[in-house]
C-alpha cells in the first residue's frame, strides 16, 4: 500500500472500527498503561538472557483486541507493521554488532583490529526487538481504534496547552486536504508529460512543493477569515463530548495492569540464557 493510502486507511479505521464509539479514555488508558509496563519491564533485563514473556503477552493481547474486538482488517494491521518492523530489524542488527561487553560470541579478525560480537549485545538486540514490537502493538491499538478528534478532546481534558491541541486539530484536518491537492498537482504534471529522468523529477517535485507551500499560506488566510466570521476570538473551543468511560471497563484495565505487573515480577529472572 502506498503511503497516502495507508494514512487514509488508518484514519478510516479510527472512525469505523467496532470500538469507535467506546470511550477514548478507556482505550487510551489501556494502551498507554500496557505500553508503560511492558517497556519498563526492561529494567529487569540481564545481560546474556533473553526475556520475552511480558512483551509477547502484551503483543498477543493488543493484537487480538485490535483484530478480534475492534475488528480492524488484518491486512491493514500487517501493512502498518511493515515499515516499523523493517526499521526495527535494522536497528537490532546494529545493536548486536556494536553493543555489549563481557563474553564474546564471535571474533572477526580484521587486519587492524578484531571485531567482537558479545553475548550481551545479542541479548540486548533480541530483547529490544520484542520490547519494541510489543510497544508498537499497544500504539497501533490506540491509533486504529481512536479518532484524532477524540484524542484531542482527551488532551484538552488532561490540560495539554490549548495552542498545541488547536494545532494538532488543524494540522490533522488540512493534511488530508493538501494530500488531495498534491495528488492532483502531481497528476497534472504527469498529464503534461513530466519527464521521468532523475533531474527533471527533482525539478517537478520542487515545483510541486513550491506551489503547495503557497497554497497552504493562502488556505490559512482564508480559513482564518471563515473562523472570524463565526466569532473566533483567538481560542479554538472544543466541544467536550464523548461517551463516558464505563467503570467496569476501567476496573478491568486496572486488574489487567496489576496482573501484568505481577507477571513482570514473576518472570524477572526467567528467560532463555544464551
Amino acid at each position: 500500500m502506498s503511503h497516502p493510502d495507508l494514512y487514509a486507511e488508518v484514519d478510516k479505521s479510527a472512525y469505523t472500527n467496532a470500538l469507535a464509539k467506546s470511550s477514548p479514555v478507556t482505550k487510551t488508558f489501556f494502551a498507554l498503561s500496557a505500553l508503560l509496563i511492558s517497556v519498563s519491564a526492561s529494567y529487569f533485563d540481564m545481560p546474556g538472557v533473553i526475556s520475552f514473556i511480558v512483551p509477547v503477552v502484551v503483543f498477543t493481547i493488543c493484537t487480538s483486541l485490535t483484530l478480534g474486538l475492534a475488528k480492524v482488517k488484518a491486512h491493514l494491521y500487517l501493512d502498518l507493521f511493515t515499515y516499523p518492523i523493517l526499521m526495527l530489524i535494522l536497528s537490532c542488527i546494529f545493536i548486536a554488532l556494536f553493543f555489549g561487553s563481557g563474553t564474546p560470541v564471535i571474533e572477526i579478525p580484521l587486519h587492524w583490529a578484531t571485531w567482537t560480537i558479545f553475548k550481551s549485545g545479542i541479548s540486548m538486540s533480541v530483547n529490544t526487538f520484542f520490547r519494541v514490537a510489543g510497544a508498537l502493538s499497544c500504539l497501533f491499538f490506540l491509533v486504529l481504534t481512536t479518532s484524532i478528534t477524540d484524542l484531542c478532546v482527551l488532551l484538552r481534558r488532561i490540560r495539554i496547552p490549548q495552542a498545541m491541541v488547536e494545532m494538532s486539530m488543524l494540522i490533522y484536518r488540512y493534511i488530508f486536504l493538501f494530500l488531495e491537492i498534491s495528488a492532483k498537482m502531481s497528476l497534472a504534471q504527469k498529464l503534461r508529460l513530466k519527464r521521468s529522468g532523475w533531474l527533471s523529477s527533482i525539478r517537478s517535485l520542487a515545483m510541486l512543493t513550491g506551489s503547495l507551500f503557497i497554497r497552504t499560506l493562502d488556505q490559512g488566510e482564508r480559513t482564518l477569515v471563515a473562523m472570524n466570521a463565526r466569532g473566533y476570538d483567538g481560542e479554538m473551543h472544543i466541544l467536550d463530548d464523548f461517551p463516558s468511560a464505563r467503570k467496569t471497563a476501567l476496573v478491568g484495565i486496572v486488574l489487567f495492569d496489576v496482573l501484568l505487573i505481577a507477571l513482570v515480577l514473576l518472570t524477572k529472572t526467567s528467560g532463555v540464557v544464551l
Binding site: S147, R173, T223, A226, H237, L239
Partner: peptide, 26 residues
C-alpha cells in the same frame, strides 16, 4: 451568518460535530 463558497475554507475542525459546535462555543 456567512456561508463561504468553498466549504474547505470553512470546515476546519477534525469532525463534523466539532465544526458545527465552533460557532455556538464562541
Amino acid at each position: 451568518g456567512f456561508v463561504f463558497q468553498d466549504p474547505n475554507d470553512q470546515l476546519f475542525a477534525s469532525s463534523v460535530k466539532q465544526d458545527v459546535a465552533f460557532g455556538p462555543l464562541n
